[in-house]
Amino acid sequence: MKRSRFPFIVTGLVLVFFYLPILILVVDSFNASRFGGAWRGFSLKWYVRLFHEPAIWTAARNTLVIALIVTFVSLLLGTTSALALHRFSKSRFQRVHYTLIYTPLVVPEILMGISLLMAFVAAGVKLGMGTIILAHVTFCISYVALVVLGRLQDFDFTVVEAARDLGATGWTATRRVLLPMLAPGLAAAGLIAFTLSVDDFVITFFVAGPGSTTLPIRVYSMIKHGATPLINALSTLLLALTFTTVLVSQRLSKSGALEGGQ
């Protein structure tokens, strides 16, 4: 029975579609020309210029600080949430809880941005790093909770019973068996939270204040002000970082960590 080639041709085109713009951008970052397009020779000058832009490094530092705090807090809140959803899945209260976890995923970012902005303005909270962290945790919880929940649902709890049978106390069984087995799932969830926080522009843009510029906000204003070659160089660096992250997450997903979530 011959298989149709059509899906494979489409896949090839889709991959070209995915990677061609990225590839051009990377190539252009080494182009000496100021406007891209025509090749004016290989150059690293945009990277050198990038290193002399203090605003970018401040933004990068802000982004990193925010992302680390957000990852930690949302892992904590998301995991407790997943445990509750899993252990008490028959409770009616958990159905409400689940809806509350699920809904932020289907709300467009701009709505979350405007509603948080209004809430902060109404409550008289000063916009800045703090409000960004609060906002990021709010959309990260749902991702963490669902990734960990997916992991728990695939989890074979008889191994915990086996540990109890072999004499472990409830806490020991949790610490020595459950947590190590959940670790890849937690790592994957953390990675997702981290990436989402680092990458978020729309919500951050709404709730950011003076002195809390993050990298995406910086990139956005560079795009708006036409600093093309610098963004190319910055993008290339970020892409390299992304590729590394994806490789790491692929390793994790080999042990099934990303199943159900991503």
Partner: peptide
């Protein structure tokens, strides 16, 4: 991979080409 890549960068890439 594109799934994990910065949204802004992917939009920007099209703007420049």
């Amino acid at each position: 991979v594109p799934f994990w890549t910065s949204f802004l960068i992917r939009v920007f890439a099209w703007k420049s080409i």
